[in-house]
Nucleic acid binder design. Structure first.
Lengths: 195, 195, 195, 195
DNA sequence: AATGAATGAGCATTCATTCAT
DNA sequence: TATGAATGAATGCTCATTCAT
């Protein structure tokens, strides 16, 4: 009798996590531009007060959501690298194309979140370290397979593909993506480092 | 003696142009997210009513401003190409790096506008053709100097550099940009097309 | 060559008339509440400036439109009376029911305009004489056929039927209207005047 | 000592009620046409945000106010009927005239609210059931004293008297109202039902 | 005479944030 | 700890009216 209404409460960490997840979904759907406390509360199935209780400001909410996205992306890359400790250039190209096309999971659109993150960081210095980290994990992962310049070039190209991917009226096709990645990643004997 | 109260000019075309230009500046400064009719009116030195009289909706204002930015970019590329009808890979790389670093003119930040355009287009289908055009003019210009795959790869890399450029806590340096462009643009004898 | 562009202009009276007619239509469609200069200009196929050029204020426009409606109504009643110089009570009832059901012509909804007129007059003293005239022409017409008290009662009942007619989810049916009119108009031997 | 700054009451139900009451007063004074959130907030002595917090849209506010007016009217009629379970025709006529002249209470003008309700319902389908209810309670009350046709006729006549009452430059006098009601209500031996 | 441009006031509504409970 | 109530500051947009041309 006494412990009935107490269910599911008293787990602030879980609620905070759920709010960040809901915020991620809202950003993917409506953008940082369209994010409101109300939209998050609604998406999370929580009362409005919960959003401001656990996150002092809207920017905190955005930061938490984007951090979550970056964490997930980092974990994804880590797993990905563990699963494929060695890849030749061609295999790498194919798998990167898969990643870009399939996004990371079915719930969140990595394309969108990456672009939102970078643009949000432009106006919000507090997000810059997060953007840096996104860049770094991408670069580091690629660096595992290719030389430094190639990794930087591939990371830039992938960001560009993502950005154009969200905006174009006809998304890039797999062959187009593969062609770009191949041009960037295939070792170039004419360059010193690129062995 | 000539400057009376000076209200009500009577040159609608010039006012429309001035409003679009002001909107560009506001987007560069505060982003599409921070764009308001009042900010535009203020930036243009016009009354609030002017913004809504000449542009039915805020999206119309955004579209006009971004179209203007794309038009200017297209013109810039056209001039650029006319000024340099022939360039070898190394010269192209250097000049592209200059463009990315110096932006296009002193008033507007091309980096920012490009990223804002792409992200705005994600939520505003009406802007997609504009995003397509941005992609196309970039690609076409590069295509003049390099093969198709290289042009596509360089365009993607440049978009990525722009996007990361606006967000990172430390912007990319010229040597870093040159290294990326060199990796992408230097002809790769190992690839068939890349002559 | 000289008299081509001059066509259709220079007939202010006709333009004023057309604007009043357009205003009537807008009131019938959207109510006095929804009336705007722009809506009138659009309905009349004239430029916005025409509405304020010929009518100093919005209230003038409203007054002109309602006066036109009352004039038309008065003319209609005059014709109606001329067409039926004598009617017994039963015929009168049937014809009044027809009027209430068919409205006055196909373009304008008399039900609506009457109610709009009365309510507009409540907040606009300038319209009161018009409301008085509407009441008077109704009363006078009825008075031609019945005694004074019956005419007043029938006029009130008809206004009530109109008012309820515009608002109810199911409009009054003809039998219901006839029943009401019969109760009001059929001579009542129990009353002195009502011979 | 008890009355501190007193901000933020914490009695939402009371505030909602107070807002609806204030809206009623604004409608009586300025009409649905002149109703604004600001006018309501001002009338209620509450901040602007209160009006939109408790009522999602202006139409919701209008609906709440008119529902309140109808509820009050229904209660008034119920009491009225309870107070006068039996009345002969002449007494009924006199009392109805009193009602029409004195309105229902000192604060709100029943004449105006009824007309506003009917006309508002014309453009707002959501209000139609309310208009129906107004008609129904009027009819049902009259039906308690007279036959069906007489009740319908008297209800229509009373609506008409109300409508004309708000608009005419000289309101109907008591003798005029009594004459109309007498003509409608006095049993007519010439009609079958009208016993 | 006629009209499109121009504007300032105002409006419904949204929303981040604060706070009483 | 948690939350619904509360609010004041915007915001996009409308519009009556004025006026230059």
């Amino acid at each position: 009798m006494t412990d009935k209404p107490a269910r599911r409460r008293r787990d602030p960490a879980a609620r905070i996590e759920a709010l960040a997840a809901a915020t991620e979904r809202v950003i993917a759907t409506k953008g940082v531009e369209g994010l409101t406390h109300r939209a998050v509360a609604n998406e999370a199935g929580m009362p409005l007060g919960a959003t401001t209780y656990h996150f002092a400001t809207k920017d905190d909410l955005i930061a938490a959501a984007l951090k979550r996205a970056v964490d997930r992306f980092a974990q994804y890359l880590k797993d990905w690298r563990a699963a494929h400790p060695r890849m030749d250039a061609e295999e790498l190209i194919e798998r990167l194309a898969d990643s870009l096309l399939h996004s990371i999971d079915d719930e969140h659109d990595q394309y969108v979140l990456e672009s939102e993150l970078y643009l949000a960081a432009l106006r919000r210095p507090a997000l810059r370290p997060l953007a840096d980290r996104y860049t770094a994990v991408s670069y580091d992962t690629l660096r595992h397979y290719v030389d430094a310049d190639t990794a930087a070039a591939a990371a830039a190209a992938m960001s560009g593909i993502s950005l154009q991917g969200v905006a174009r009226s006809t998304p890039l096709t797999r062959p187009e993506i593969v062609a770009i990645l191949r041009r960037v990643i295939t070792p170039n004997p004419a360059l010193p480092d690129s062995a």
